[in-house]
């Protein structure tokens, strides 16, 4: 369903999984009942779910929501709340759009449920706007989810209403699912860098460089939240900053591209994308950049998802 033309009655429900995506989730697979359980519990709180929207198109959550929509026999919106992958719930679009993420329903691998409810946090913060209230709610939900994930050592399904379908266009990042599927086909079919070029040109993207990974400094080492790796070959030296996601690329020391732009690190042989935790020393890679998908509140989006939001001390640079 196109979010910009959605007119059906009812609400769009955001669905996704929060937690350490690589570890626990790959072992302790979802039973499949979690998403329906979450939507059912939301219904008991008065949420009339008529469509599903992924929390984030990037990574596991893009497909999870599609699967959930199929399970629930609901349409999925061609949209998400992040335009990419993002680590924290308070970076997601409702948090700066005046839409509260509360009440939210969390469901764990055993079907155990938590309802995070309460007054909107705008009430506790005097003299501020709806946006400030939704940001506070987002931060609060993020912290609760993080605490629960830590306590249970796994993951939880996160779900909440993003508002009525007729108003959802103001909140979400549109057209990311079809974009993802388009790029999936392009990359699967790609035989060479030059073969990618027309598609990059069409979207205003570019190849930042290629070569082998010459050094890696993983996130968390020395207490730093972000890490980096370098790519060198005959051409210029690339440095890619990363956390769970790729955050910025500098070419020979000058900043070429940063989050929220889409930074892709591709296997140089297969052209399939690599995750940050898959980067290995000496691997041959291609680094590409695509302009971000943008919601209506572009400035807020860039501010909330730009380098500063990850503690990096530089301005956003978009292709």
């Amino acid at each position: 369903m196109d979010p910009l033309t959605a007119t059906a009655h009812g609400q769009a429900v955001a669905l996704g999984i929060a937690g350490a995506a690589d570890g626990p989730l790959s072992e302790q697979l979802p039973s499949g009942a979690e998403f329906p359980a979450a939507v059912e519990r939301l219904a008991s709180l008065g949420v009339d779910a008529q469509a599903v929207v992924p929390l984030e198109v990037g990574g596991f959550n893009g497909l999870a929501a599609v699967a959930a929509a199929a399970q629930l026999s609901l349409p999925v919106l061609d949209a998400d709340l992040s335009g990419r992958a993002l680590p924290w719930l308070d970076q997601f679009s409702p948090a700066y759009s005046g839409v509260s993420m509360l009440p939210a329903v969390l469901v764990d691998a055993h079907g155990r449920t938590m309802v995070v409810g309460g007054a909107t946090h705008a009430a506790a913060v005097p003299d501020t706007t709806a946006e400030a209230g939704s940001a506070a709610d987002g931060r609060y939900l993020e912290e609760i989810v993080r605490a629960v994930v830590r306590a249970t050592g796994g993951w939880v399904v996160v779900s909440f209403s993003v508002g009525t379908l007729s108003e959802v266009a103001d909140v979400v990042v549109p057209h990311v699912l079809l974009r993802a599927s388009r790029w999936g086909r392009v990359l699967a079919a790609a035989q060479s860098l030059s073969g990618l070029q027309p598609y990059l040109d069409a979207e205003g993207g570019r190849v930042l460089g290629d070569g082998h990974v010459s050094a890696i400094h993983r996130p968390g080492v020395d207490g730093g939240r972000t890490g980096w790796f370098t790519v060198s070959a005959s051409g210029p030296l690339l440095r890619v900053d990363m956390q769970n996601e790729f955050l910025a690329v500098a070419i020979d020391g000058s900043m070429a591209c940063t989050t929220p732009a889409v930074i892709g690190v591709l296997d140089a042989r297969t052209f399939l994308p690599l995750r940050a935790d898959q980067i290995r020393l000496a691997a041959d890679v291609v680094v590409i950049a695509l302009p971000p998908s943008l919601p209506r509140r572009r400035d807020a989006y860039v501010e909330r998802t730009g380098p500063a939001s990850f503690g990096l001390d530089f301005e956003a640079v978009l292709p």
């Binding site: 519990r41 055993h110 079907g111 155990r112 449920t113 938590m114 309802v115 995070v116 409810g117 309460g118 007054a119 946090h121 009430a123 506790a124 609060y140 609760i144």
Partner: peptide
């Protein structure tokens, strides 16, 4: 104190 509440539903666990 903020008036927030969280409902925990864990069956008999």
């Amino acid at each position: 104190a903020n008036g927030d509440h969280v409902v925990v539903e864990t069956g008999d666990d």
